[in-house]
Simulated assay, not measured.
Amino acid sequence: MRKILIISHLLLLVSISSHGQLKKNEVLKPEFATILESLKVKGAVLIYDVKNNTYYSNDFTWAKTGIIPASTFKIPNSIIALETGVIQNDSVIFKWNGEQRNNKKWEQDLTFKKAFQVSCVPCYQEVARKIGVNRMKTYLKKLDYPGMFFDTITIDNFWLQGESKISQMQQIDFLERLYFSKLPISKRTENTMRNIMIIENTKSYTLSGKTGWGMRADLDNGWFVGYIETNNLAYFFALNVEMKNATMDSFPAIRMNAIKEAFRKLKLIE
Rank of each mutant, 00 (worst) to 15 (best):
F116A: 05
S164E: 12
K141P: 02
S181G: 04
V121K: 08
R129A: 11
Y145M: 04
Y124Q: 12
K182T: 09
A115V: 01
V133S: 01
L178M: 11
R135T: 11
E190N: 03
E190P: 04
T138D: 15
A128H: 03
S164Q: 11
E176G: 09
V118S: 12
E190D: 06
F150W: 03
P184F: 04
E176I: 13
Q117S: 14
P184W: 07
K130S: 11
Y179N: 00
A128V: 04
M169R: 15
N157H: 08
S119Q: 06
R135V: 05
R177P: 12
T152D: 15
R177I: 11
M136F: 10
L160V: 12
N134G: 09
P146N: 05
A115R: 05
Y139M: 13
G132F: 07
I172D: 04
K142R: 15
E163G: 07
E176C: 10
Q171A: 13
I155Q: 02
D151K: 00
R135I: 00
F158L: 00
M136Y: 11
N191C: 02
D144E: 15
V127K: 07
F150I: 06
R177W: 09
C123I: 11
S164T: 10
Q117L: 08
D156Y: 00
S167Q: 01
K142F: 13
S167T: 00
K130M: 12
M136P: 03
Q125W: 05
I172G: 00
S167K: 04
D173Q: 15
I155Y: 06
C123F: 11
I153F: 09
Y139H: 14
Q161L: 13
C120Y: 06
Q161N: 14
R129P: 05
V127A: 01
L178N: 08
T189R: 09
